[in-house]
């Protein structure tokens, strides 16, 4: 397989025909019912949630919504959630836990929205709470990064038992643009930043952050929606079944350990300088 550079992938996932969750959901799930609102403040268009069927099994779907055009993007705020989006996701996750439904998170966001209202409504608290609560949810959680996985805004749907990356998806602590801006005070050096920040599916496998890479059709997901949806569905059917078979306490232990072991440091002895 011809591996693309991180920057080529960035261009690919920004392709105007890159499929979004609005394309994927009807392909992958049956009888999908969208459920709105966080029951606290409002309904955030950047994250849609709902119940549907994956094969025979009812599942809860939480998905970040990139618009396919300006109209859709206005509604979904270019997939940048406000706190109520994360709170809706948590509400539906708790509901899934109650009814013993596995949770499928579809990640595709440049990041949590940065704005006055988002701050006033506790963007930090909303994300933090999801991290803590998802770690303890007594039902399987599978996350897939579809395109862009931007920082804490992505991680808020990324505390899971298994993380998959679409082949060309990127997942990063900061957008390459933001990274370039901080590094060189020059956002236009995105291409170089992309390489340095190490955010491709292969990088994430190496760091133990992702467990699976879902292959995309030649030239990228937009070239064959049917095929890429099939690949995603196949992965989900297998993993959901596998995780559902597992003893829930063991599953939770493994989920904790998955994140617990990430970190690169050294201690004493070898550093006496």
């Amino acid at each position: 397989m011809n591996k693309l550079s991180a920057y080529e992938r960035l261009e690919l996932i920004r392709h105007k025909n890159r499929p979004t969750v609005r394309d994927y959901i009807p392909q992958i799930f049956d009888e999908f019912y969208e459920i709105h609102g966080d029951r606290l403040y409002g309904d955030d268009g950047a994250i849609i949630g709902g119940i549907g069927r994956l094969g025979e099994r009812p599942v809860t779907v939480l998905a970040q919504v990139k618009g396919r055009n300006i109209e859709e993007n206005k509604k979904s705020n270019f997939a940048m959630p406000h706190p109520e989006g994360y709170r809706k996701a948590l509400r539906l996750a708790k509901q899934a836990e109650k009814f013993k439904r596995p949770i499928i998170c579809l990640i595709d966001t440049p990041g949590a929205f940065c704005g006055v209202e988002a701050e006033a409504r506790g963007q930090g608290e909303a994300i933090a709470k999801n991290l803590a609560e998802f770690m303890m949810l007594r039902t399987p959680v599978i996350s897939i990064v579809l395109g862009e996985g931007g920082s804490g805004g992505a991680l808020a749907l990324g505390v899971c038992d298994e993380l998959a990356m679409l082949e060309n998806a990127l997942y990063s602590v900061i957008s390459p643009r933001g990274f370039a801006n901080i590094l060189w005070k020059d956002a236009s050096r995105e291409r170089e930043a992309c390489q340095i920040v190490k955010c491709t599916a292969e990088d994430l496998m190496r760091f133990g952050v992702a467990e699976t890479i879902i292959p995309e059709p030649v030239g990228g997901a937009h070239n064959d929606l049917y095929k890429i949806s099939e690949n995603i569905k196949e992965f989900l059917l297998e993993k959901v079944e596998e995780k559902c078979q597992k003893d829930i306490d063991l599953l939770l232990k493994e989920r904790y350990t998955k994140f617990r072991k990430i970190g690169e440091f050294e201690e004493n002895e070898d550093i006496a300088n």
């Binding site: 933090a128 803590a132 770690m135 804490g152 602590v173 190490k198 994140f259």
Partner: peptide, 25 residues
């Protein structure tokens, strides 16, 4: 997050939050 450590720094958010959740439990 310390961006000099890339995605690994992001994961520390989940790690610390998870530990707090267990402490709280």
């Amino acid at each position: 997050a310390r961006m000099q450590e890339g995605i690994i720094s992001l994961m520390q958010m989940a790690k610390t939050s998870g530990a707090i959740a267990k402490h709280s439990e």
